[in-house]
Design a protein around this nucleic acid. Structure first.
Length: 569
RNA sequence: GAUUCCUUAGCUCAGCUGGCAGAGCAUCUCCCUUUUAAGGAGAGGGUCCUGGGUUCGAGCCCCAGAGGGAUCACCA
């Protein structure tokens, strides 16, 4: 925030004032009766059609008695043609000469009525017969232009400004608006897919007394009336499973989760996850379900295509996807068969592969390290990695054929995890033991081990049917489908460090201290802010201000020292 | 957290060996009745991120700090 108004801002405020003087309300209350949208008019052109539309004026090119403009509405842009004698049929030409030419700025919202025609160059244009000021814009928007070759000039690109002022980013960068539309299309398509199967969309607590369902550092807050700590959820898994206990066949939730960890290109402290749980299913069923669902979603976002271009890679979401067990993946990419070997041997393997390990790592973590380091990047096309070690998956059912493994899969796309699913653990006694193992891990130094949720165990004791659950990172999936490499590009308002606060100096702040109105402006000019002013001594201020008065030949009575001293009391 | 780069007009960016703060677009004034990122002529607009230091002189060099980007580490 700049403390002072720029020249352009001052000019816009003056224009605002002149509009008022001309009897035009720059912020009218009444609705504007929109009947048309820019892009619709362009796709279904009808010569002479009477139209009413509204939006921001994004280009203004005056050519004497005729002018061109560009109106940007929620759907796109359309050119406007203003002819002085059409806009002002009578003697009084001030609406064109003054209001349009001088008082309208780029970024102002206007409503226009007129008729459609094609210019000599063939551009579909609205010949304006009447325009209405709907909202005056007081700050200049960056002017982004695109030439015939599609090359963008003076683009608004600074990531800091784009994220801090997303509203500006959205106004001037069409592609950004499109990215977020795709995000919504993605979620709608997913929701549609689940609803067709009659699964129930639900909401579960964001404020949780025990942050369960995942291993991560939570945000903590406090409830005053109950005088207890509450945590922002790191996952909603345990609540959704309680609903399966309660008898629903399928439940899902699009959930904002919160994790108090580092921020980077793929992590934001709050992020969106879709989790779904379906009773009487196992993880094989869930693989089929997931690949069908994704194919459906990708088509919906991508206008029917199952392929997505990411740089020079083309990714095809056509079902079915490849399936590989974790042990086979490691065998394939490292040559080591880790099935049935113990922790000590695993450490040997890690050393041989040049993977850094430490003492707090258990068997599961070691295997995960090997996979993450040596295998994960190879899975570019959608691939299910199955059968994870038991230690890594405390909420997942033991593998039906191998007690060291679990019935878990992750979906890898472009070398990254997109979805995670289990045959859910529904044996309450096994679940209690797993939680206790987590407790031991945390005593060993793993600060991400899970808390024990006694109520969740009680729910399982009442009985949960065999269930399969799946979670999918909506932000990361959106990144994939919109070819974005940072999560900030798919979140409207990504977390940022707080903006540096520049105390915007204001005359009235000085007047509150007792500085008389005729002096306040000059004191502000000399000292800038109240804070700086307070640091000065009265004697110094007295001399400084009288010096300023003399230098600028101000027509104000000179200050007396006692007067100045009074300001500081 | 580490490394590294960036921060100059409303926007995008130049700025040489340390020597008067620059361009394009935007803005303002004048001219122009179908233009296409760009008609013509003229004008205004700056906390060079902040604070110190070196120097006759700092946008530029040095130190510290802020914000941001990238890479790495951390993070199922």
């Amino acid at each position: 925030m700049s403390a002072r108004l720029s020249e352009q801002e001052i000019q816009r405020r003056e224009a605002l004032q002149k509009l008022r003087e001309a009897g035009i309300d720059p912020y009218p209350a009444a609705l504007y009766p929109i009947e048309n949208y820019s892009t619709d008019l362009k796709t279904n052109f009808e010569e002479g059609k009477k139209v009413v539309l509204a939006g921001r004026l994004m280009r203004k090119k005056v050519q004497g008695k005729a002018s061109f403009g560009m109106l940007q509405d929620s759907k796109g842009k359309i050119q406007l043609y203003f002819n002085r004698d059409e806009v002002c049929p009578g003697e009084d030409k001030s609406l064109y000469n003054d209001v349009f030419k001088k008082l309208l700025d780029l970024g102002d919202f206007i409503g226009v009525k007129g008729e459609l025609f094609k210019t000599q160059v063939g551009e579909i244009t609205v010949k304006v017969t009447e325009f209405t000021v709907l909202s005056k814009s007081l700050k200049p928007l960056p002017v982004v232009k695109t030439d015939e070759q599609g090359k963008v000039h003076d683009a608004f690109t600074d990531p800091e400004q784009r994220y801090r002022m997303r509203y500006v980013d959205l106004v001037v960068n069409d592609k950004v608006r499109e990215t977020f539309r795709k995000r919504t299309r993605l979620m709608n398509a997913m929701r549609e897919f689940f609803n067709q199967k009659d699964y129930l969309e639900v909401e579960t607590p964001i404020l949780q007394p025990i942050p369960g369902g995942a291993a991560a550092r939570p945000f903590i807050t406090h409830h005053n009336a109950l005088d207890i700590p509450l945590y922002l959820r790191i996952a909603n898994e345990l609540y959704l499973k309680r609903l399966i206990v309660g008898g629903y066949e399928g439940v899902y939730e699009f959930a904002k989760d919160f994790r108090n960890e580092g921020m980077d290109r793929t992590h934001n402290p709050e992020f969106t996850v879709m989790e779904i749980y379906v009773a009487y299913k196992d993880y094989f069923w869930m693989m089929d379900f997931t690949e069908q669902m994704l194919e459906h979603v990708v088509k919906a976002v991508n206008n029917g295509s199952t392929t997505v271009q990411l740089g020079d890679r083309e990714i095809d979401f056509k079902a079915p996807f490849k399936r590989v067990t974790m042990i086979d993946a490691i065998k394939e990419h490292t040559g080591h068969d880790i099935s049935g070997i113990d922790e000590k041997q695993l450490r040997e393997v890690c050393k041989e592969l040049g993977i850094a390990v430490d003492d707090t790592m258990g068997k599961g973590k070691l295997i995960d390290e090997i996979f993450g380091e040596k295998c994960e990047p190879h899975y570019v096309q959608p691939t299910f990695i199955m059968d994870y070690p038991k230690e890594m998956s405390p909420l997942c059912k033991k593998h039906r054929d191998n007690p060291d493994l679990t019935e878990r899969f992750e979906l890898m796309v472009n070398g990254k995890e997109i979805a995670n699913a289990y045959s859910e653990l529904n044996d309450p006694i096994d679940q209690r033991e797993r939680f206790e193992e987590q407790l031991k891990l945390s005593e060993k130094g793993d600060d991400e081990a899970m808390f024990i949720d006694q109520d969740f165990l009680r729910a399982l004791e009442y009985g949960m049917p065999p269930t399969s659950g799946m979670g999918i990172g909506i932000d990361r999936l959106t990144m994939l489908l919109t070819n974005q490499s940072s999560i900030q590009e798919v979140l409207f308002f990504p977390q940022m460090r707080p903006e540096k606060k520049v105390a915007a100096p204001n005359k009235s702040d000085f007047e509150k201290m007792g500085v008389p109105a005729e002096w306040s402006e000059h004191v502000m000019a000399v000292y800038g802010s109240v804070e700086e002013f307070r640091k000065a001594k009265p004697t110094q201020v007295h001399q400084q201000m009288n010096g300023y008065r003399k230098k600028n030949k101000l027509d104000i009575t000179a200050l007396q020292l006692p007067e100045v001293e009074a300001w500081f009391n």
